[in-house]
Computed example of a mutant assay.
Amino acid sequence: MNRILLICILLAGCFFETSAQYADLVLPGATQTSRYLSLLKNKRVGMMVNQTATIGNTHLVDSLLKLHVKIQKIFSPEHGFRGNAGHGEKVANSIDSATGIPIISLYGQHRKATAADLKDIDILVFDIQDVGTRFFTYISSLQELMESAAENKKTLIILDRPNPNGDYVDGPILDTAYRSFIGMQPIPIVHGMTVGEYARLLNGERWLSKGIQCDIKVIPCENYSHQTFYRVPIKPSPNLPNMAAINLYSSTCFFEGTVLSLGRGTDKPFQVYGSPLFPKQGFSFTPRASASNPNPVLKDQLCYGYDLSNVPETVPRKGRKIELKWLIDAYRIFPDKDKFFIPFFSKVAGNTQLQQQIVKGVSEADIRKSWEPGLAKFKVIRAKYLLY
């Protein structure tokens, strides 16, 4: 076939294929070096990055070093610079063996970069793949880095990346009485924003500590919209190994606040749930200790339950929402209802109301109605800061 004709056919196909194929054309902010290299020239640079900060198959740190950027130190979030530390595992400071650059853990002795950490830094860069949920801690790390930057008069460049759950907004708004590192602001569980948009919201609404504002420069994605089906190329954390887990995360993370297993310690974390006390029929699994899950819930116990990895909710679709039916059904069939919820549930849900509603047998439809006023208000706020 004529080469030019073949190219035309392939290009035409790009316009008529689904958004999943179109997402292959998305260019994250990091790839657009011409937009930010001049800002880093002759500066001592601090970078908050992990394994997801790449340009193609090359880590951003390596790419910038080849472009003669002076990287003074690396700051790492939960799961560490290489992304292999377990859930909630504290990470120590270290030296990157490949480059010799010091790594300061912001999920170890302290979470906020101190004045001492930043004294030899002229400018900061943030590049981490988020998944668009309130309880995924990377947006909390972003907030605390923004506060540190503002307090120490440093500019923060945010290299934006697509949100794989950016096509919808859903869930209860956080009651700030239950503020924690898995929920720092009054936003819904699924906020529908990229990290760059969220940083603009934090500044614009003056939600940073004491109302301060950070000097941010967002390098946006190219060829991305909130309807783009974006397939995350590198797993953002050890227990989100694939797109099924990433898309189910907003619904199955509720089980973190119960006595059930949600699959940590199996090959399908956040894609299965169960308990030894569930009816002994159908699907079963046994959580095992591993490097990323040294002590999973219900370790070494045979659990009966449900495998969600192949249900329609694992892929984006029009009208996506958080699925409450799994949590409601699990509570209904659990034999010892007084022990189903643990105190951590209020932090995951961001309130005590959801637990009370489920215990009282409130229908899913009525629970969702109770979210509507807060969601409507948030969507008005969110709209002011969208870039896509």
Score class of each variant (00 low, 15 high):
Asn50Tyr: 09
Ser97Ile: 12
Trp326Ile: 05
Gly80His: 02
Ser94Lys: 02
Ala30Val: 09
His110Trp: 09
Thr31Ala: 15
Ser19Glu: 11
Gln109Leu: 13
Asp167Thr: 07
Ile333Arg: 05
Leu11Trp: 01
Ile121Cys: 03
Lys321Asp: 09
Thr114Ala: 09
Cys14Ala: 14
Asn223His: 14
Ser97Ala: 15
Ile4Arg: 13
Ala85Lys: 13
Leu142Val: 04
Val49Ala: 04
Gly196Ser: 12
Cys253Phe: 02
Leu67Phe: 03
Lys280Val: 13
Thr31Arg: 05
Lys377Val: 08
Ser251Ile: 03
Ala349Arg: 02
Lys268Arg: 10
Leu298Asn: 01
Asn351Glu: 15
Asn239His: 08
Ala53Pro: 10
Leu39Phe: 10
Asn223Thr: 09
Ser275Ala: 03
His59Glu: 08
Leu124Phe: 04
Leu308Val: 11
Gly282Asp: 13
Ile328Asn: 01
Ile333Tyr: 01
Val362Ile: 14
Gly100Val: 12
Ala98Arg: 05
Ile139Lys: 02
Asp329Gln: 12
Gly46Lys: 03
Val348Thr: 06
Asp366His: 06
Ile216Leu: 04
Gly132Met: 08
Leu298Val: 00
Phe378Asn: 10
Ala150Tyr: 08
Ser76Asp: 07
Tyr22Trp: 11
Asn152His: 14
Arg161Ser: 14
Leu64Arg: 06
Leu124Pro: 14
Arg368Ala: 04
Val311Asp: 12
Phe278Ser: 03
Leu124Arg: 04
Pro236Cys: 12
Ile158Ser: 00
Gln353Glu: 12
Phe254Gln: 08
Pro343Val: 15
Leu60Met: 11
Met193Asp: 07
Ile173Met: 03
Pro172Trp: 13
Ser370Pro: 11
Ala113Met: 08
Gln227Cys: 01
Thr54Met: 13
Gln21Lys: 13
Pro188Met: 15
Asp122Lys: 04
Glu89Phe: 01
Asn50Lys: 06
Trp371Met: 14
